[in-house]
Design a protein around this nucleic acid. Sequence first.
DNA 1: GAAAAATATGGAGGTAGTTTCCGTTTGTCA
DNA 2: TGACAAACGGAAACTACCTCCATATTTTTC
Lengths: 216, 216
Amino acid sequence: MTAAKPLRADAQRNREALLAKAREVFDAGDFFDLRFDDFARLAGVGTGTLYRHFPTREALAEAVYHEEVATLCDRARQLQATLPAEEALATFLHGMVGYMDAHQGLARTLATLMATGSGALAEGSRALEQAVTDLVAAAVKDGAVRDDVGAGAVMMALHGIGAAHDRPGWRAEADSVITLVLDGLRRSHQSASSASGSRKARHPAADVERNSGRAR
Amino acid sequence: MTAAKPLRADAQRNREALLAKAREVFDAGDFFDLRFDDFARLAGVGTGTLYRHFPTREALAEAVYHEEVATLCDRARQLQATLPAEEALATFLHGMVGYMDAHQGLARTLATLMATGSGALAEGSRALEQAVTDLVAAAVKDGAVRDDVGAGAVMMALHGIGAAHDRPGWRAEADSVITLVLDGLRRSHQSASSASGSRKARHPAADVERNSGRAR
DNA sequence: GAAAAATATGGAGGTAGTTTCCGTTTGTCA
DNA sequence: TGACAAACGGAAACTACCTCCATATTTTTC
């Protein structure tokens, strides 16, 4: 699945140069403020070369994203092998917040890309989600965590945290979200979540009708 | 603050036409797939007219967004006046999910706009956040909800839900997130959240270092 | 109710970012 | 070392965005 074509020496070199510059800009958060052409200029290659290696902005982003995700997944596996399931999950999630905090530009860029719906990050995201799924599954198996809430919900929360990077008290709020998720996740009181059935929305008036009196 | 200038009759008409078409496209989720010029064409006005009324894409979006937010805020106030605080909060949050479910294109569009960092939706977002803040504050005052987690965390979770609109099991997962947040929010077991201090990240290795062995 | 003044219109054309295309250069293999 | 393939780079075509102003419409004035 990895690199099927030998790729010529200079091509390899140019590709690296492009990636290096991209990562730099990516991390600085300037990814979208820059003309796509200029990546070429900055990396010291021609426009054509840039386009041959990375047909679109997203393709370039994807390549950078890949490495980051790999790092995070490794960490997840490592935690899972080292700590009790529940603790591993907690540590990983808080670690994610720390990671985003340390790489805000990157978080910003990724959030934008996701929202743009490019779909280029799909593979990487899937890998990350798998890691979270494993962590949650282990915790469920331990009986430390409820079994009626999938990892998808956790992913959504993480997504929200990443997307809101520019809020004033970001770090504190982000940690709060994780706290809420973890506390909510801990199997303890089935009774408390009385009305909040998780499957069907059987809440009174769960639907808000759009009612502004506009001529159509 | 509202409309200081009388605005000529035909201008008013064109403005409405533009808004109507925009809302339509907005809701269908095609907002970004369309050349900005074409809004004019579609609404039956000239390019210049479009630009005079709405200098940017974001300005147009903002105008549409405004109404939607107003609807939601009204609903929040109404719930708060009708139900016990905790229930009002729960109902509102589940209602938000229902709303997004019923207006997916809109949710998608908004998520994209937020991520793009346009800032045009700032005012509307602030209004919505205020509504949530009020709901949470009331619940805290009732003693039904912990006081060490601000409304900002809830906003982040909502943000995540909106941003992830395109996931396969969206509705179920979205409801799960709300469930987690609500359960996590309910004041009950201070002991359970042992290691998850919400302010300072004093988690072991909360920072993940970027380590891939790449030449730089 | 007609002329003057103010306001708004629409689309042709300028501007800028993106992408393709192809003659030239560089690397690889025998 | 020669021949072939792979890759380069930047000029030029394309596309979307936005401005500008001669013309048209509405409102005000007398």
